[in-house]
């Protein structure tokens, strides 16, 4: 096996995409044609260097783009609920209906649960992807662990965001209000699902082209730039959950429905804690065996 063949094998092993691989091989072939005695370095080391540098940029870029797509979806979702709610005489919150409304139809409960939980996971995961990408924005080569967490956060955010978008047409279908928002919801919801899912292959590509640098990935405290040893990921999750409960209760008071606010607050606060417990390690909020 000659040098170029070895390089091609190592590039493939490092996860360099086919087109990029062909380009690199063509460049090295041209180089060797110019100077057959050129000392280009060990193919494995070069492949790792390409994977390190390109993998870092790909993971970071994918996280930024995933967040941007999720932000678009979130803005549309908020606008739809706000306008839909206003059209039907409701308030922002989760739309027009109090939680008890959903309980009247048993099949709404699992459907809305999945959509609400997905939306919150998407928001958290996408935001955390942006946070870590921004924190590592000047790092020329990130660790494989950091890249993996970035890709997971982007991937989970996109898939959960797409799942949450199902709520848009479904809610309006089952409510069956004759409003121009119904038409918009039925068309915009699927369009956003397509937008979000269309980015998943980017995450897969980024996951394949992972940097080879070893080292630990930071946790939530690193993402937030907290150096106080008392600020552990678990404590942050608890504080955040309490804050969510208080905000939702305040929203309930503002909407003249304290009971609804408390119910939503407890649900959202508990969802935050459960999400942390279930996805905390997978999304790099806490390190395994720590906190």
């Amino acid at each position: 096996m000659n040098y170029v063949d070895s390089l091609q094998v190592e590039l493939a092993a490092a996860g360099i995409p086919t087109r990029r691989r062909a380009r690199i091989v063509a460049e090295f072939s041209d180089h060797l044609h110019e100077n057959p005695e050129a000392e280009l370095g060990a193919p494995r080391d070069l492949a790792r260097q390409f994977a390190d540098e390109l993998g870092t940029r790909l993971a970071r870029g994918t996280a930024y783009r995933a967040f941007a797509a999720l932000a678009v979806a979130a803005i549309v979702l908020v606008v739809m609920f706000f306008n839909g709610g206003r059209t039907w005489g409701g308030w922002v919150g989760y739309g027009h209906y109090p939680v008890s409304y959903y309980l009247h139809r048993w099949w709404w409960v699992p459907m809305m649960l999945v959509c609400f939980i997905s939306a919150q996971i998407a928001l958290a995961s996408g935001g955390l992807a942006l946070l870590r990408a921004w924190r590592l924005r000047r790092v020329p080569v990130m660790t494989a662990a950091d890249a993996a967490i970035l890709n997971r956060r982007a991937g989970v955010g996109l898939v959960c965001g797409a799942t949450a978008m199902i709520a848009l047409p479904l809610t309006h279908f089952v409510v069956d209000f004759s409003s121009r928002w119904n038409t918009v919801a039925i068309t915009v919801g699927p369009a956003l699902i397509v937008l979000l899912l269309a980015m998943v292959p980017d995450v897969v590509r980024a996951a394949r082209l992972r940097p080879t640098r070893e080292g630990p990935a930071g946790d939530l405290t690193a993402d937030l730039g907290l150096e106080d040893p008392r600020a552990t990921p678990r404590r942050i999750a608890v504080v955040l959950s309490v804050a969510i409960v208080l905000v939702m209760v305040a929203v309930g008071v503002y909407s003249d429905d304290l009971y609804d606010g408390i119910l939503r607050g407890l649900f959202d606060g508990a969802a935050c804690l459960v999400g942390f417990a279930v996805l905390g390690q997978y999304l790099g909020l806490q390190r395994s065996g720590v906190d």
Binding site: R20, I24, E27, F28, H31, A38, E39, L40, G41, D45, L46, Q49, F50, D52, E53, L54, R57, P140
Partner: peptide, 14 residues
């Protein structure tokens, strides 16, 4: 080392 220039070129382009 000549080979190290290529990853740098790709990075600068990215």
């Amino acid at each position: 080392p000549e080979g190290t220039v290529y990853p740098a070129l790709h990075r600068l382009e990215a």
